[in-house]
Computed example of a mutant assay.
Amino acid sequence: MDSKIGVCVIGAGRAGLLHANNYRRNVPNAKLVAVVDPNEENAKHAVKELEIDKYYLNYQDALHDDEIDAVVIVTPTNYHKEIAVAAANAGKHIFCEKPMAINEDECDYMIEAAQKNNVKLQIGFMRRFDQSFNLAKEAIENGEIGDIVLVKSLTRGPSVPQEWMYDVERSNGPLAEVNSHDIDTLRWLTGGEFKSVYAIANNYRCQDISEKYPDFYDNVVLVSEFDNGKQGVIDGSVSVKYGYDARVEILGTEGVIFVGETYDKQISVCNVETGSKRPLTKTWRSLFKEAYLEEDIDFVNCIIEDSEPSVNGHDGKMAVKVVNAGNKSIKTGDKVILD
Rank of each mutant, 00 (worst) to 15 (best):
I5Y: 02
V7E: 04
C8P: 04
V9Q: 03
V9G: 01
G13I: 06
A15P: 05
L17V: 10
A34R: 04
V35F: 02
D37T: 04
E41H: 03
K48H: 11
E49M: 11
Y59N: 12
H64D: 13
D65R: 10
A70R: 03
V71A: 06
V74Y: 00
Y79W: 08
Y79F: 11
P99F: 02
A101M: 09
E104I: 08
C107M: 05
I111Y: 01
N118D: 08
V119M: 00
K120G: 02
Q122D: 11
Q122E: 12
G124E: 00
R127M: 01
V149S: 13
V160N: 15
P161C: 11
Q162G: 09
R170M: 11
L175F: 10
H181S: 14
H181D: 11
D184S: 09
L186C: 14
L186N: 13
R187L: 11
R187D: 03
K195N: 12
A199I: 10
D215I: 01
V220C: 13
K230M: 13
G232D: 15
I234K: 14
V238Y: 14
S239Q: 15
G243A: 14
I250E: 08
T253P: 09
V256G: 03
F258N: 13
D264Q: 06
K265R: 10
Q266R: 09
S276Q: 00
K277Q: 08
L280P: 05
T283C: 06
A291C: 05
E294K: 01
E295V: 06
E295M: 11
D296F: 07
F299T: 02
C302Q: 04
I304D: 04
E308S: 06
V311T: 06
G313F: 01
D315A: 07
K317F: 04
K317Y: 01
N327P: 08
I330D: 03
G333K: 04
D334C: 12
I337R: 06
D339C: 13
